[in-house]
Amino acid sequence: MTGEVLSVRDLVVRYRSHDGQPFTAVNGVSLDIGPGETFGLVGETGCGKSTLARAALKLTPFQSGQVRLLGRDLAELDGRELRKLRRRCPMIFQDPRGSLDPRMNVGRIIGEPLRVHDLAGRRDREAKVREMMELVGLPDELFDRRPVQLSGGQQQRVGIARALITEPGLVVCDEPVSALDVSIRAQILNLLADLRDRLEVAFLFIAHDLAVVRHLSDRVGVMYLGRMVEEAPVEDLFAHPRHPYTQGLVAAILHADTGGHERLQLVERLAAGEIPSLLDPPAGCAYQTRCPYATDDPCRIVVPAAEVVAGAADGEDRSHRVACHHWAEIPAPATTLEPGR
């Protein structure tokens, strides 16, 4: 496990609903992120992807399981050590404007982590901020502007600069481009790709949109109702999704192409109905209520364990894993993404 940036084992996070009912938001999830690796975590509302990320930084407590972050076991850290560790694991949020203090100017916002963690003096700070602004493509003259005076894309660049200024080991991006217009979204995705390549920083990239995740991730994990249902290298996941839910998500990527109607019908077949309530999860496989392949035995009785689909030649943890009782018998849907040229 040495060299791992983040290693999560059998993580369980339980919450209480507003009327006191307990529910399990993350249910026995494991994942590993290596140095410089980008892990894309996808799933729909309530699947636990954001909770998992927050628990990995211990921003939310977890009930059981183990998290090793930048080589440290979170269970062994006191509050001071935890804060010190977290400054190397910043977050980038969905709503760029809402996550920036409206009273501060751009320079101060970007330099704030250096000040809070006492990492640089005032003069050094300003130089570092300007360097960072150039890196993320913010013109120098914006240094004194306030967030409201910036466009959405510029605001998100400020969020990215602030995240990267502490030379992080892991950056957690929670839906970083969902609030942006299409033409601006592409600019930010390219920027994140450049930064990933240049800075060799690891990313945990959370999104509901598989198409976005596909652009940036080395590995992708799919969560559903608190569980990891499939995990694979990015090309493998899109070309050969094994779990019926992943197949539905891949088919649900709306392409600017003909045949849209057939794809919608395929999605409806693979992902019928709606996500059940976390307060009353189904017995057995979490997906059995929507799955076209579900059988009474074992799907409605036994929770499927993650099985290895195909290991890579080097035998490292690069494998394709799926948690489905029937994955080996499920036919490949007609509409999946074949690997590109």
Binding site: N190, V234, H255
Partner: peptide, 24 residues
Amino acid sequence: EGLLRLVPRFEHRAHKRLRPIEGQ
């Protein structure tokens, strides 16, 4: 044409670099 370049397509490979429409 610029917008269409940014839409996911079957033909794209993962990690394909996008060509955004520059400016605002």
